[in-house]
């Protein structure tokens, strides 16, 4: 017996909450990937990352509305289109922001911090003006609702599985782009030594712009996934940015596996603890544990072993 629960009840709860945490996990992974890519590439901490996510969420919402009104027979598959559009919108905005703002502030980390924070406020206001202050939600197609039963006590939500599957595909794609494609080679060269990368013939400014766009675009996809666990409002992104930083630091900056492991640990810890404690207590416990582990392993969960 654990508290008032029998062991089998307890494990069912763990499993249920675990699966319920899948979407949160996916959102964390995607957000952290984007944030880590941008930070690794240009040392920019993007405080507006949450707003790029929310842009993706609004795009998904718009898609659901438009499809319901005009082409209802496409409703079952609209979510795929919405994700692609969410990516495109956030990617586009990212490229624009890099061009208009970020590129003037490289090598000035405090200024970029302030500038992106200002950007996040500006975007929140923009969302408020365009979409209104009220939160909006999307309707999911029927096939994504409901759940698969495993045994009598455990239910796995279908949308959770779907989003996790997609997240894994995107993580794999990012890994492929970074470590197997020639574009990724250029990105890594710029990350290592910007000046030298230019001197071997790499257009570092173009690499910067595309990388920033990619990071933001992935946040847009996270926004699509986010619509399944929360309602979309102008400031909803704010709630996620801190958790995402936590995931990145805990995972060890620059390690894809580390990011995934850390997103998994943190989302699962929060999701299961929330069942037994209040939400804020769960947060505090998670945070304390992460801080404790970071004191023992300052480099994060995973890091590269290499002479530099």
């Amino acid at each position: 017996m654990i508290g008032d629960y029998s062991y089998s009840e307890f494990f069912s709860i763990l499993a249920m909450q675990g699966f319920a945490g899948l979407i949160l996990f996916s959102v964390f992974v995607l957000m952290a990937l984007g944030l880590a890519i941008i930070f690794g590439q240009m040392g920019v901490i993007n405080m507006a990352h949450g707003e790029f996510m929310i842009l993706g969420a609004y795009v998904t919402y718009l898609c659901s509305v438009v499809v319901t009104d005009y082409v209802p027979f496409l409703f079952p598959v609209y979510f795929f289109v919405a994700m692609a559009l969410a990516f495109a919108a956030s990617f586009g905005l990212g490229v624009l922001v890099e061009w208009a703002l970020i590129r003037h502030l490289y090598r000035r980390p405090l200024d970029t911090l302030l500038a992106t924070w200002g950007l996040s406020l500006a975007l929140q206001q923009l969302y408020r003006s365009v979409f209104g202050a009220r939160e909006v939600g999307v309707t999911l197609p029927d096939w994504m609702m409901g759940s698969i039963s495993l045994g009598d006590a455990i239910e796995i939500p279908i949308n959770g599985l779907f989003v996790m599957g997609l997240t894994m595909i995107i993580a794999a794609a990012v890994y492929f782009i970074m470590f197997r494609s020639s574009w990724g080679k250029r990105v890594r060269a710029v990350v290592q030594n910007r000046v030298m990368a230019g001197a071997v013939g790499i257009n570092t400014k173009q690499v910067d712009r595309m990388t920033f766009g990619l990071g933001c675009g992935i946040a847009g996809i996270a926004g699509s996934a986010f619509t399944m666990i929360g309602s979309t409002g102008p400031t909803a992104g704010q709630l996620y940015i801190v958790d995402t930083f936590l995931v990145v630091v805990f995972g060890g900056a620059g390690s894809l596996i580390g990011t995934i492991a850390s997103a998994f640990t943190i989302s699962q810890a929060q999701s299961t603890l929330e069942f037994f404690l209040s939400g804020s207590m769960a947060k505090v416990l998670t945070l304390l544990t992460v801080v404790g582990i970071l004191m023992l392993r300052p480099q994060g969960l995973f890091s590269l072993n290499i002479r530099r």
Binding site: K185, R188, A189, Q192, N193, M196, A197, A199, L304, I306, R307, R308
Partner: peptide, 11 residues
């Protein structure tokens, strides 16, 4: 080829 080589060490 710069002084100090500056190869990309993690690649």
């Amino acid at each position: 080829v710069p002084q100090g080589r500056m190869i990309f060490s993690t690649m």
